Computed example of a mutant assay.
Amino acid sequence: MDFDLPETALAVREGVGAIARKYDQAYWDRCDADKRWPEEVWRDLVAGGWHSLAVPEEYGGAGQGLLELAVALETLADGGAGGAAAFLYLLTPAFGGLTIARHGTAEQRRAFLPGIVSGELETCFAITEPDAGSNAIGITTQARLDGDHYVVSGQKTWISGLERADFLVLVTRTVPAAEAEPRTHGFTVLLVDVKRAVADGRLTYRPIPKFGTNTVASSLVFLDDVRVPVERVLGVPDEGFAVLWDILNPERILAAASGVGFGSLVLRVACDYAHERAPFGRPIGANQAVAFPLARIRAQVELARLMTYKAAWLWDAGRPCGSEANIAKLTAADAAWQAADRAFQTHGGMAYSLEYPVARLFRDARIAKNIPVAEELILAHIAQHELGLPRSY
């Protein structure tokens, strides 16, 4: 059993780390305060090809896997980006590049992947609805076949990055849930031309005011008879659930990588302050009440890193990884939150000062326990599928 990262992943860690070191916490604070996409970082990632790691070489990408994407995301988060790093690697590299490379037709790969590699084309993903969050089976956004087009109507919510996206990876129902047999039948995943749909007045959206992660907008989206050519179906019509799980498992694994990097970053922020702050003549980090909780979180972060790498390795190998993806996400999100909470406590009253990054990191850490899947549903999955207990939902 070899726990060494492959050379490809080590090169990713070095290259992305060099970019991360160019941007200090003040930069990320400004992006968050201004509700601004970190354009400079994104352009650096594109210029180095660090965003297109999972795109096959024939389309200009690096031809690597989910493990390399996870290491890139972890490195960027650890290097200072914190929670903002997740969106830089989920929206286009994963939802677009990884998904189209794996499930796109030859024509779709030729049409989309070179643009993703060059940075000229960006994507986002939409599954969540006002009445169907974690219950993906219950989505009602309908795609009706009309000649050589699907006509799509419905609502989506918490759709991040739509304002930047050229194409939306959209999960629809082509068979209503009540008529589907089995329940997973009747899903169709579409590539929607966002700018055309907006120009036609068929797609409108409204940003949702948020508590944190303000470097990217998240919106309520309305689709009103949006026309999508049949050649923009990802995978097989009515059988898109297989594509969906090939989106959701990598999403959870990358969310876990974000949590690992985030936890490592926040621990460093906390430890730096614990070294510097000496109100009683010695650093507060010398006190076990401060040091022991941080040491425990260090152990939690390391355990989450191991499971994240294992889940990514399994996915790259084409092996089942649902439980590992869920466990990685659960443990990494909790480690990141515990780290942020202890960093807040370590800073004492200064945690409330916006002169320090801890308040932003605290806000960004909390949402990871809820998205992309709530920890309660992960625990329900583990209880049912790993422990053999009765289904609870």
Rank of each mutant, 00 (worst) to 15 (best):
P6S: 05
A18C: 05
D24L: 02
W37D: 10
W37L: 05
E39H: 04
W42K: 15
D44N: 15
D44C: 03
L45M: 12
L53Y: 01
E58P: 03
E58S: 02
L67N: 02
V71K: 00
V71E: 07
A72L: 03
Y89R: 11
L91Q: 15
P93A: 02
T99W: 02
E107T: 05
S118Q: 14
F125K: 14
E129F: 03
D131Q: 12
N135C: 07
G147S: 07
Y150W: 13
S160A: 15
S160R: 10
S160K: 12
D166I: 06
F167V: 14
V169N: 10
T174C: 06
V175C: 04
P176K: 01
A199W: 07
G201A: 09
R206A: 06
K210C: 10
G212L: 09
A217S: 14
S219C: 15
D225V: 10
D238Y: 13
F241L: 08
V266L: 02
V266G: 00
H275W: 07
E276M: 03
F280G: 00
G281R: 02
R282Q: 00
A286T: 13
A289W: 00
V290I: 06
R296L: 02
I297L: 00
P320M: 00
P320A: 01
N326Q: 12
K329A: 04
A336H: 03
H347A: 07
R366P: 01
R366A: 13
I367Y: 13
A368N: 15
H381R: 13
R391D: 15
